[in-house]
Design a protein around this nucleic acid. Sequence first.
DNA 1: AATGTGACCAACCGCCATAGT
DNA 2: GACTATGGCGGTTGGTCACAT
Length: 259
Amino acid sequence: MGRAPCCAKVGLHRGPWTAKEDTLLTDFIQTHGEGNWKSLPKRAGLLRCGKSCRLRWMNYLRPDIKRGDINQDEEDLIIRLHSLLGNRWSLIAGRLPGRTDNEIKNYWNSHLVKKLKSQGIQVRETSPKNLPRGSRGSEKEKKKKKKKKNSSIAEDVVEVQRTQIYAPKPTRLRPATANSNATNVMDCGQGSDGKIHGGDSSKGADICWTDFIQQTDQFFNSELHYEDGLLGSVYQEYSQLLISDDGYQLAIDSYLYDE
DNA sequence: AATGTGACCAACCGCCATAGT
DNA sequence: GACTATGGCGGTTGGTCACAT
């Protein structure tokens, strides 16, 4: 049984928010706090679905949202975090105070992809096949997709040769468990060389994490030096995420490109 | 001035993860 | 364990604007 839509959409407003709606939402959240998005619209007197309210608040109305152009430091950080995390926009946004995942995603797609390509840098692209969320790109969705006037961007993307210069594609990490048998999960172990390997025999994949970290380290340190050490500390932090508590056993999913 | 084209970005959609029952 | 509700995420769409023709 499928899950019910987030809202019935009957009689609910859609499209751009009006100033009045913004005020209602902001006032309500400032008084009652975030959460209970499902019931919030009704309580706030809004004819919107909770999902829409949440999105509006998170991406636009929150008082800590930073407005204005993304500066060079932020851009560098986005590029580097993307190299480490892939399209995990919310994680990347979490490292850029005041920036939202939507903003970063838009900035990446509209500015950075082109910019990096113009510099001859291969940009990792997404494709349904590679997405960790298995059912994306279903026939239903494909059918839904229409030709757009600017669809050339997406088509160009497909044409991009997948010679990655970046470290891993989006990867979800967790310590391996004895009964870990989920799909798209690879168990990693320590090899005879003392390095950490992750393998998915079905794809012939074999990943060495220590090599990866070393290489990424070099990548991070090779081009720019940040006096404040911000990027370095961020990188260190995410590097730690790739190593489990016991230091060698990891489970990852969907690590390598399918060819 | 009218029309076409492309870029930008707010908003939507569908899905997954998780918590609660 | 199965089911449902909710929050959250990433991909995509479509409206708007600026610029070119």
